[in-house]
Amino acid sequence: MKTAMPYPTPAGEVTLQVVGAKVDGRALPLHMISRTHQVVALHEVERREWDEVRLELRAELPRGELSAGAWRDVVCVAVLTEGATNARTTARLSGTAEDGVRTGSITLTRGSHRSRAELSLYVVATVEGVPGRIIGGTEESWIVDLQAREPVRERELVIHKVDFRNTDEEWLRPYRDAPWLIETTGEMPTVHLNTGFEGIEDLLEGSGNPVEKAVRGMLAAQIATEAWTAMFQAAVDGLDVEDGVPQWPTGWRDRVLRGLVGDVFPDLSPADALRELHARRSEGGRWAELQPRIHYAAARRARLARNLGTTVRTLERSGEDNRR
């Protein structure tokens, strides 16, 4: 937390680690907790039915600084939230013999969470006679992912493989000639991959020689570029406006907007960029001008240039090999 506050705050860093997790009393294998990505993956919990998960936490506060400063009644609170379920659970961590280290646990109940819970830490104290002041916290939250198989942070797209010609999802049938379709109306954006399109599955999934690999990378980047563009447009279209001010959306729309605005408006702060996006969307002409930049941002995110570069290089090599 680096926002300037109208009262003194400690300069040192605050960190939070999830050091263990128990699912209905049974320890979760440690590989389900990734410190690098700050993610706890709960999807592959062996028992499908579970009621609660207890996360063991360890926080480190700026040593020395807190005891010397102007802060009284310093408490350290872990907060577990999920936007979609309006869930909010808090737990106080208590001091240990080790200076600056606080430990404790927080419980996630199944009925209160759906897909991704966020875990953050706040340091709260009485400052200049005012109790309850937030004086610090973690810069990046932990994610408790109830759907992920592996503890990986990015989960932005669902790939849905289906034969468009023979599916119960009637709306897909008219598109049976299309290799894929991107849909952004749902809870998660989805790429419907048409397995009825001959060869596409092998192309995307086989191992193959370097040329095939390169083409696969190209194709994947192509799909990803389209998906990012569609997701970005959908997120902007769905912006909620309060008193003329566009609000950050929730879920994937939030991640997509925050992920791309930096490339769309490199000179603006995220908040200003959001306002600018909304303003341009509301007046048609200037929105059209923005298309190249949106496409550029999406292509960057999809690593199109890198994949194309690799493909060109690989094709050159294979051409040379053939001549030899």
Partner: peptide, 21 residues
């Protein structure tokens, strides 16, 4: 609420999941 933490000023152990169940 951006500078004050209501959870600390006004503690609540939260709803009892068993009661709801």
């Amino acid at each position: 609420a951006s500078t004050l933490m209501y959870d600390v000023m006004a503690p609540d152990d939260g709803p009892d999941a068993d009661g709801l169940r």
